[in-house]
Write a protein that binds this DNA or RNA. Sequence first.
DNA 1: CGAGCAATCTAGCCAGCGACAAGTTCAAGT
DNA 2: ACTTGAACTTGTCGCTGGCTAGATTGCTCG
Lengths: 195, 195
Amino acid sequence: MPTTKSGSYHHGDLRHAVLTAALDVIATEGPGALSLRDLARRAGVSHAAPAHHFKDRTGLLTAIAAEGYELLADALADAADLRERGVRYVRFGIEHPAHFQVMFQPDLLRGDDAALLAARARAGAELRTGVAEVPATGRGENARLAGIAAWSLAHGFATLLLSENLREPVGGRDPEEVFRTLAELLFSGSRASRK
Amino acid sequence: MPTTKSGSYHHGDLRHAVLTAALDVIATEGPGALSLRDLARRAGVSHAAPAHHFKDRTGLLTAIAAEGYELLADALADAADLRERGVRYVRFGIEHPAHFQVMFQPDLLRGDDAALLAARARAGAELRTGVAEVPATGRGENARLAGIAAWSLAHGFATLLLSENLREPVGGRDPEEVFRTLAELLFSGSRASRK
DNA sequence: CGAGCAATCTAGCCAGCGACAAGTTCAAGT
DNA sequence: ACTTGAACTTGTCGCTGGCTAGATTGCTCG
């Protein structure tokens, strides 16, 4: 697994190696189990090497969060409608659980990091675009509320899913499909038109 | 409160003191900043004293989570209807941010703890009761979906609120009130059984 | 009443961690 | 050839969690 670089005692791509190892650890054991020294060991480098790429532990987590927001923005970019955008949101949580966990835990992050803020803004814009596309929700106050509602629904569903709280109610079914019918059920009534 | 005899020994009530200090730390700096030794220092006892009441760090967090589920169940108990129950859920998150954060981070908890499981079951029952009370959602599949939807909405709203992600859209308004109108907006149209 | 006993707390230890500082190697660019 | 700077190593400090052994306390029961 350690990208064997015979001869060169400079690891070929340590930043990437540490990043992916970190995602693996977070996804399986949670962010609390993350240790820079452990990551260094996995990559076959000295204990202080990772710090050169990510200042400190918070820096690493912040980089992961920023990457997560970029991935989320990408994932939302070309969705058909608002409901599909919600499905993408949920899918993002399922496919990138480590990113997702870190992104929404502000106490783990450097909140003023430039890359993080930029990525978050991009994802936020993508989110808001999705709401604006729905004609019936209309303008002003209602549009904003609908946006919060949609985001809350998708985020809550994804969060509960990742925290094992929806294991029983969802059963063996595909979570994305469950969410799709869920969203249809709810938003069908919030506009004038019925199905 | 939870099954404690709380006699006055060396400290008086160390368990309670540590618990409240922990909640304070978590609420202000997050669960990652929690240190048993720091809590011991605050309580004026030796560094190993807290471990006697809560086995280890995970034990402390598990106790907090269990207490959180108890508090949540209490909070949901006498709500008028489903929407109000959602408002209570959000309010719980706002009033007990430390509990809320810990409850839904499984990697911090001892998942097989008896007290935790009992408390979680109680809160879960309370949650399901709230859904069953709504007549229009009806029976079977739709009822379950509506339950997931309601929970997701409330949970997502609370989570986003606590992670500072709703600061701008909510603005200066009362979050509970925002959620109330939100829930009304969504659930007003979902009563007629579709399909 | 007083002796045992268990709950509570202390003190000391170890391995591991994050952060920092200073040195080392390497690949360029001038 | 010499410098410059990035990537990495080595060493160290203070802190943490968790363990163990031992001390103290107060409750209970004979």
